[in-house]
Each structure stands twice: as C-alpha cells, then as structure tokens.
Design a protein around this nucleic acid. Structure first.
Lengths: 166, 166
DNA sequence: CAATAGTCTGACGTTGACGTAAACCAGAGA
DNA sequence: TCTCTGGTTTACGTCAACGTCAGACTATTG
C-alpha cells in the first residue's frame, strides 16, 4: 500500500486522502513567491500541514486559503504580518472549536480563550467598518472635487469653442 | 517695513499676508516627524511654499493640507509615496487651472494636460470604489463567519449549563 | 540508475520609509 | 552681543518584507 501521507486521526475534520501540494504549486496558485512562503513559516505565520520524510513542505487546501487570507488582510486592511498573525491565530482557534473542546480538562479556561478570540475578530470587524466609512467619506469628497473641476473645465471648453467660431 | 515673506504676484490665489509655518509647527499639527517632511521634499513629494533668506522651510496652509492628504492616501488607499506623488501632482494641476490657463500660449496642449489629470483622478476614484466594494465583501464574509462561531459557542454554553445543574 | 526538475537551508542583498546623531546656522529676546 | 530655541545639511542606521544567490538534497521519470 502507499505511504500514509495524511497523519491525522479519524476525526473527520479533513478529508482522508487530502491532496497535498509542493511549495511551487502553492506559489503558482496564490501568486506569492516561494521565498515568501518560507518567510511566512519562518516568522510563525503559516506552517505547511506537514513535511515529507525528506523534509519538503506539503501544503493542504486550508494552507492555501490561509495564504490568500493573508494577502487579503495585507491589501485590504493594510495590516503588517504581525497583526495578521494575531488575527489568523484567533480565526484558527475558533475554527478548531469542535469535539476536542469537550475533551478539555478545563472547559472554563477554554471558553476564556475562545471568548478572547471572538473579541479579536470583533475588533477586526470594527476596523473594517471604520475603514469602509473613512473610504466612503474620502470617495464623496473626491467625487465632489472631481465634479467641480469637470464643470470648470467645461466652462473653459465652451469659452474656447466660442472663440473658435469668430 | 517688514520683509516681504509672500513673494507671490497679485493673482488672488493666496491671501496676501498668508501665515507661514516652521517645520516644527507643521510636524506638530500634522503628526508627522520633521524628518518625514524633509524626506517628502527630498523625493519631490512636497516642497514648502518657500524658504526664508536663511534657508529655513516655510510651509503654508496648502502645504499642511497636502501633508494630511498624503497620510490619507497612505492609510486609506495603501499607496506608496511614488503613487501618491502622481495623484497629488494631478490634483495640483487641476487646482492651478485658473486665469493662468487662459494666458497659455498653447491652450490645446494645456487642455491635454488637464484631461490627463482628470483621467488620473478618475482612476483614483475607481480604485477607491473598488476598494470599498472589496472591503464590503470582506466584511460580509466576516460577519457571517462570526455569527456562525458565536452560535456554536452559545450551543456549548447551554450544554455546559445543563451539565452544571445536575 | 542516471538525468532532470523541484526543493532545502543558509546567508547576504535590496527597497521603501523613515529614525537618529553630529556639527553647524538663523532668528527672537534679554 | 550673547544666548537659547529651533532649523539645516550630511550621513549612517533600522526595520519589515521580501529577493537572490549558492550548494546540497529529494523526488520523479524514462
């Protein structure tokens, strides 16, 4: 039989024979460089699901999604990688709340952790809302000024047209 | 008589006795460092209205506004200083379209320039709109996931409560 | 089993956007 | 005139987020 590439227990979280990808494929699919992926791992931002016996990185689908999310947080929210680390950590904690939560020896402590994760994501939501509001103000101002200039340019246009037909 | 700090001609564009500010005052008012202001000048992004005979920078109100706009474009749009230079240059070109436009020897060429400036600002508007749309999608997704997790946590809460009162 | 393509770990380089320190000027008040 | 506060240039330092090698190792394929 083939080697067991999926080392996970039978918890149903991941499809058993999940497809794993090399770093090159992930780079191609996400548009980030291989160097960047290694860098993300280096700073503890994103580690591949597992490694081949030879030591090569094997990424799963979730890892790819996470890369895309990192880029989203960079581009849309303007976060640096440290901030992104905090956010994605909170998200991961929430995603992993399942049966293993029940198995916890101290469920009070666990809920505390999850509460904090929820608070973190709430902050993120607030930040996103604030940014949207600011951008809408920015856009309104832009539209207004744009219109003003357009009208003024039109006036000059008319003036020139009149001049032309003497 | 006092020295003529305002070297501008009588064109009405600026109030005659306009207040000029030292670099320290501008830094305090805008929240950017003096180093940053000098850096902006160094890369041709923002030059003070004029200099004192001794070589000291004298900023006017418009300069301050421009500093604030630069920060806005950095924070909201995530532009780098080169992109900001292009945008603010286009804005300046539009702002300076006044009587001196009439005086141009080649008004066709001038309108060409202004048209391009308008196009540049139009692109900025599009970018802002796109960013808002993306952020709204991001936020909607966030809200949805947040709700899902909150409900799940609530379920666990109830389960624990029931356990407690045996 | 050799060739080829893909990946690994260092380690140093780069770029943007400033920070910081040194040593020298400018302008207002006592 | 002296002095103090604020400003100037020059130049090197820094930090995040990677880029770019070199040289060895791994995996796949004919």
């Amino acid at each position: 039989m083939g080697a067991a590439l999926d080392a996970e227990g039978p918890d149903g979280t991941q499809a058993r024979g999940e497809q794993l990808h090399g770093i090159g494929a992930v780079a191609a699919q996400t548009g980030v460089s291989e160097r960047t992926l290694r860098y993300y791992e280096e700073i503890g931002l994103l580690s591949p699901r597992d490694h081949s016996p030879g030591g090569m990185r094997r990424y799963c689908r979730d890892d790819i999604d996470r890369v895309l999310r990192i880029r989203e947080l960079q581009n849309l929210m303007g976060f640096n990688l440290e901030e992104i680390r905090r956010v994605t950590a909170a998200e991961s904690r929430l995603s992993s709340l399942r049966e293993d939560f029940r198995a916890s020896s101290d469920s009070g402590r666990q809920r505390e952790v999850l509460d904090e994760a929820l608070r973190a994501l709430d902050e993120l939501r607030d930040a996103a809302q604030a940014k949207i509001a600011a951008l809408q103000g920015f856009l309104a101002d832009l539209d207004e000024r744009f219109e003003r200039h357009r009208r003024r340019l039109e006036g000059l246009q008319d003036l020139d047209d009149a001049k032309e037909e003497t």
